[in-house]
């Protein structure tokens, strides 16, 4: 499956057409399930390759623009460091609001705090000790997430 086939193009096209300002497009793209799932379904290499294909078309149709923005917003669901690494290799200047997507993501990203990590460890321990009858010490799973 290619990225374009995985995207909810009717909804994304409407969001793009109605966007008077980039934040409208960004928020509607980001809340779209097909965008949320994009980073789970495709590798970094596939994401970068397909983005480059769409932005380097000689005659860029509106559908190409929407797919490129879709890929870009999909990148924001990757772990922060991965997202930044990919943004750094993509030619964002080819899209009118490309740099906005990157900058808005960076500015609105909220890193984990130590309190939050501790809370997750605590919850993991409580969950384990109340459901397990073994003496094996649980290894808390710390997942990165935005707060």
């Amino acid at each position: 499956m290619t990225i374009i086939n995985s995207l909810d193009l009717p909804s994304l096209t409407a969001a793009y057409m109605f966007a008077d300002v980039p934040i409208y497009m960004y928020k509607h793209f980001r809340n779209n399930d097909s965008i949320i799932n994009l980073s789970k379904s495709f590798s970094e290499k596939e994401i970068i390759t397909e983005f480059n294909i769409y932005i380097n078309k000689v005659s860029m149709e509106v559908k190409d623009t929407i797919v490129a923005y879709g890929i870009l917003v999909g990148v924001t669901y990757l772990p922060y460091d991965d997202a930044i690494r990919i943004f750094n290799v993509l030619d964002l200047n080819k899209l009118e609001w490309g740099e906005f997507v990157r900058d808005y993501y960076i500015n609105s990203y909220k890193p984990l705090t130590s309190v939050n990590i501790e809370a997750q460890i605590y919850n993991s321990l409580i969950s384990h000790t109340t459901s397990s009858k073994t003496d094996i010490k649980p290894k808390p799973k710390i997942t990165m997430r935005e707060i």
């Binding site: 008077d20 300002v21 934040i23 409208y24 928020k27 609105s108």
Partner: peptide, 11 residues
């Protein structure tokens, strides 16, 4: 206005 950050989205 976009409610989260108060940005203007339409007029």
């Amino acid at each position: 206005f976009e409610p989260d950050k108060g940005e203007i989205v339409h007029s």
